[in-house]
Simulated assay, not measured.
Amino acid sequence: MSARLSVDVAIIGGGLVGSSAALALRGMGFSVALLDKGFCGAQASGVNYGGVRRQGRPVEQLPLSQRAHAVWPRLKALIGIDGEFLRSGHLKLARNEADMASLEAYAETVAEQGLDLELIGHNGLRERFGWIGDGVVGASFCAGDGHANPRLVSTGFAAAARRAGVEVLENTAVAGVTRNGEGFALEAAGNLALRARFVINSAGAWAGPFAAGFGEPVPLSRIYPSMVVTEPMEPVMTVNIGMEGGGIYARQVERGNVVVGGERALPLADADFSRPRGDGAIAIMNNAAALFPGLRHAQAIRFWSGTEGAMPDRNPVIGPSGTTPGLIHAFGFTGAGFQIAPGVGEVLAELVRDGETQTPIAAFSIDRFRDVARTDAGSGAGQNQEPQNAGELRP
């Protein structure tokens, strides 16, 4: 038996970007099918660290990040749950004077972007955040940033999209997409034949073949961030923590568990999957205990990792295809897509409805990799290479 479905928009990939776009499009009156090869929100969107931060992002991402910043406080009204979103503030630590100088330079660069960063010296840090250990010379604080539960938020958007009337098709891998007249023909698992006027490629680490199929190969690689969570504890930290230049990041949830990351997992034989490294998990715990004395006797109760698509310049691909009308890309968030995803979803919906958006996205055009991708293809560059100069790869 085969099934046929016709919609205005087909979205490949049910992560937070795809599901938020589906919800926004339904709000505009479009018929939408959201397809995922597994379960919506089960990949990077649902297993990331959960940081909801603007601080530290490349400057070109900040208009989009600010747009998403306005969505997070409205989660309950938008998807029916608050996703444990907490505007705790984000404190980025400097381990030495060079790191502090970098934080100062960034604060000056983004001074007009509305982040309201506060630079804090060593003495001020000790007075206000005495639970941080030695070896830190200062920090930059963004009071409006925070954190949330990715497992709740990612599935919450997909559930809200389903309630709004989106055809949510899980365990439905897309086998092929072709341009067909005024729209697209998609072949998917279960002998599903789907027609759509628009296609959004938000397939995360699996988005590369769909782009290449329309003559737009990109140097998309895979990274495998790894996290540790502790037992519930008395309050240890009051803010979401990051480190200038990369390294450990940590947050404590209202139940008392502390989530800590900063290492990479190992890909398995099937590169779609990974597992935490034993030495990596130990390194995360030792680094956390050294930086936060209150964690020295904490018991780690769970470890996990996930698969994320990464681009070499740390910026995602967002925007219309350069080769195919009606095709829109949104992938390659390099471990930093959680906060901006709701804003990206709104932008994608506007691109479908209006053909444009007022939020600046030119820096994310897929055309910027046109020559690079061809060079990489000729040299046999692999899908599992780490992005260069990726900095602090985290949500």
Rank of each mutant, 00 (worst) to 15 (best):
L115V: 12
D116F: 04
L117K: 04
L117C: 09
L117N: 12
L117F: 04
E118L: 12
L119R: 00
L119H: 00
G121C: 06
H122D: 13
H122K: 15
N123F: 10
N123Q: 14
N123C: 01
N123A: 14
G124V: 03
G124C: 08
G124F: 04
L125R: 07
E127S: 13
E127R: 13
E127M: 10
R128K: 14
R128G: 05
F129R: 00
F129E: 14
G130Y: 07
G130D: 12
W131D: 14
I132T: 03
D134W: 07
G135K: 01
G135M: 10
G135N: 09
V136L: 03
V136C: 08
V137F: 05
V137W: 01
G138E: 14
A139E: 05
S140M: 08
F141Q: 07
F141T: 07
A143E: 12
A143R: 13
A143P: 09
D145V: 02
D145N: 08
G146C: 01
G146W: 04
H147Y: 14
N149D: 15
P150S: 13
P150R: 11
R151Y: 15
L152T: 15
L152C: 14
S154V: 12
T155W: 04
G156E: 11
F157I: 09
A159V: 04
A159F: 10
A159C: 10
R162K: 11
R162P: 02
R163D: 13
A164G: 10
G165P: 01
V166C: 12
E170G: 06
N171R: 15
N171H: 15
A173Y: 03
V174Q: 02
V174C: 07
A175R: 11
A175N: 12
A175S: 14
G176R: 11
G176N: 11
V177S: 03
V177H: 02
T178N: 05
T178W: 06
T178D: 04
T178S: 09
T178R: 07
R179L: 01
N180E: 13
G181M: 07
G181P: 06
E182N: 11
G183Y: 13
F184N: 03
A185R: 11
A185P: 04
A185S: 15
L186D: 00
L186G: 07
E187A: 05
A188M: 10
A189W: 05
G190H: 08
G190V: 05
N191V: 05
L192R: 13
A193T: 06
A193H: 14
L194A: 05
R195G: 10
A196L: 06
F198K: 13
F198L: 10
V199R: 07
I200G: 08
S202R: 01
A203G: 14
A205D: 06
W206M: 02
W206L: 03
A207P: 13
A207W: 09
P209Y: 02
A212M: 07
A212V: 02
F214C: 11
G215Q: 01
G215V: 09
G215Y: 00
E216T: 00
P217D: 04
V218K: 11
S221T: 14
P225Y: 11
P225C: 13
S226C: 15
